[in-house]
Every structure is written in structure tokens, then in C-alpha cells.
Amino acid sequence: MKLYFHPMSGNSRRALLVAAHLEVPLERIVVDLPKGEQRGAPHLQLNPNGLVPVLDDDGFLLWESRAIMQYLAEKTPGQTLFPADARGRADVNRWLFWCGAHMAPANTVLVFENFVKPLTGRGPADPAEVARGEALIAKHAPVLDAHLAGRTWVSQDRLTLADYSLAASFALAGPARLPIRDYANIRAWLGRVQELEAWKRTAPPVPPPASHS
């Protein structure tokens, strides 16, 4: 299987985390996002949305990070990241969809403004966008923080795809200055995820910011 990805992409990180956890061998092909390679015709043939990651399993092209997570789990006998029973699977899916609809988009605003812009020399953060991102996090983070009270993991009392999906959206919490200091349950849970071998093995190198000289 081939994975077209970028090491700084949170969406790519989701696929990498599951592959690392399940020890699924992947041929990794970097798509140069800063140079716009994702918008070129060759990549658009893989994913018409012009995004990463894309999984190529012997000609079966699959995009959308959470669909890739589920597919890798489904193909791995004996895995426990994605439950087999209907209620367990629905609960994990609930958090996958919630992450995609609410938490990840909220975090992405500040990742772009506070991390991507300075990294790529696109100028200073837009105060209005920063305020919008902080407001979105203030709306959604309390839901996750309250849910994690008294829990070690997000779903099923064990590590699942839900943890990897959500944690990937917080991967750049420090450099993106995500306002999560007051959410002790989220921070404790993130600490547990960051101790996992799959997390350590998929950590991207953080390059220095672009020079403005």
C-alpha cells in the first residue's frame, strides 16, 4: 500500500498513527504542499479535492483520513481500534464525525494562523481569524473535556480510532497556541496519547519559521 501524505499534515498523521499502531507497512510518498503539488494534475487524479492523505491499495484509491483509518483497521485481523459490535462502532464513529465536523476545524484555524503562516512566510496572523478560532475552541473543547472526566480514553474504555483522530487535531497545540490550558482532562488525555509508541514514531520534524529577511 502507498500513502501520499505530508509530514506536517494532521490529516496525514491520522493515517500514519493507525498504520504504525497496527504495523501496516506503507510506502510513503510525500506530497509537497508548500509548493502546491497537491493542486497539480497528477495528484488531482488521486484525489480530486486536492488534499492529503490518499491511500493506494493496489489501485483502490481512498481519500478522507478517517475513512483510511477505518479501512486500515478493517484489513487488520484481531485489531481492537475499531469495534466489531454495532454500538461500539457507532460510539467510535460518533467521535470520528464530531472531530471532523467540530474539533478539528476549530483547531485548524489557529494552526493556520499561528503556525502555518509564520512557517511559510505568509505574513502575520489575522486577529479576526485568531479570535474566530479561539471562539470555536471555547465552544467545542468543553464538550470533549467534560466527556473525558474520569475516563482514560475517549471511547469504549480503551484506545480506539477516536483517540487517534482527535489527538491528531491537537498535535500542533504548542506552536499553534491552542487555548487548552484550562482543560485539564484534555491535557491529561493528550499526555497519555503522546506516550504511545505510534505517536512517537509518527512525530514530524518541526522546521524553523520562514525567514523574512
Rank of each mutant, 00 (worst) to 15 (best):
P53R: 11
V109Q: 06
V109M: 03
P208V: 07
N107T: 15
A149V: 13
T120C: 11
L148C: 09
V206K: 13
G40D: 08
K139T: 15
Y4C: 04
H102D: 15
S213F: 12
F82Y: 15
Q156Y: 12
A67Y: 11
D157A: 13
R132I: 08
T120F: 14
F112N: 07
R39P: 07
G150C: 00
S213V: 13
A184N: 01
F60N: 07
S12A: 12
A104H: 11
W98Q: 05
L44S: 02
A167W: 09
T152H: 10
D32C: 10
P209H: 01
A176Y: 02
G191C: 10
V52C: 03
M1P: 02
V206L: 15
P127L: 02
V111I: 14
R132L: 12
D56Q: 08
E74V: 08
V130I: 15
W63S: 13
T80C: 09
A167F: 10
L96G: 02
A173S: 07
V206P: 00
L136A: 14
E134W: 06
P179S: 06
D163E: 09
D163P: 04
D58A: 15
P105G: 10
V24S: 00
A141G: 02
F170H: 15
D157F: 07
Q70V: 10
A198K: 00
E74I: 05
R192Q: 14
W199E: 13
S169W: 07
A101H: 12
A86D: 02
L17Y: 07
L110H: 05
V54P: 01
A20T: 06
A210L: 11
L46G: 01
D56C: 11
S155F: 11
K117Y: 04
H43S: 12
A162T: 14
W98L: 15
T152Y: 01
I68Q: 03
T202L: 09
L55V: 03
I180H: 09
P205Y: 03
V109D: 06
A210K: 12
V30L: 11
D126Q: 10
D157M: 09
I137K: 03
T120E: 14
P204D: 08
A128G: 09
P83A: 10
T76C: 05
V24P: 00
A167H: 06
G50T: 08
G174M: 00
E195G: 08
S155H: 09
L81S: 05
E134Y: 05
H212P: 00
P127D: 11
R122V: 05
Q194F: 04
A73L: 08
V130E: 15
I137C: 04
P124Q: 00
H43I: 13
A90I: 02
Q79R: 02
M8K: 11
L22R: 04
S211T: 13
S9L: 07
W95R: 00
D157H: 10
L51P: 00
G88P: 03
G88F: 04
T76F: 11
S165T: 13
S169P: 04
P105M: 07
A101T: 13
V130K: 14
